[in-house]
């Protein structure tokens, strides 16, 4: 059991976890009731899923082929920075175009703010 073997097991784990998380994100989009809760699943689980698949790919080519692909690292950074912004913008656009929430407990000041503007 040397280091290469351990890294190979890590690669397998990263790619499997990434695939599993993407699957869970897809289930979440199907199961959850409204735009905002679906956005929770899509913007979080999909982010980490894609990140860990990319990390596994990077490690695979680095260990097996000796090829240091810095584009994959850049891709990881870009996804990490942009996907929460995308989630925020989608839910904001949904709210501003009047999409109703599911059976809420408290729908706080945002409604008050919107009604004050009118």
């Amino acid at each position: 059991m040397n280091v290469i073997e351990i890294i190979r097991i890590l690669i397998v784990l990263f790619i499997l976890i990434g695939g599993f998380l993407s699957l869970v994100a897809a289930f979440g989009v199907l199961r959850l009731p409204d735009v905002y809760t679906r956005n929770h699943a899509a913007s979080k689980a999909a982010t980490l899923g894609v990140l860990s698949v990319l990390l596994g790919t990077f490690l695979y080519f680095y260990v097996e082929e000796g090829h240091f692909n810095s584009r994959v690292i850049l891709g990881i950074v870009f996804i990490f920075v942009t996907s929460p912004v995308a989630g925020h913008l989608i839910s904001r656009a949904a709210y501003n175009s009047g999409v109703k929430l599911w059976s809420n407990s408290v729908q706080d000041d945002l409604k008050r703010k919107k009604s004050k503007q009118k």
Partner: peptide, 29 residues
């Protein structure tokens, strides 16, 4: 940042795979 990303994924995982959907969403300031 990285720690929170992993924790939030675990919570979404639990939420989605739980058989009963007993969530109470809302917006707070």
């Amino acid at each position: 940042f990285i720690k929170e990303l992993i924790l939030s994924n675990l919570s979404v995982l639990k939420l989605v795979l739980k058989p009963k959907l007993d969530i109470k969403p809302g917006i707070f300031a």
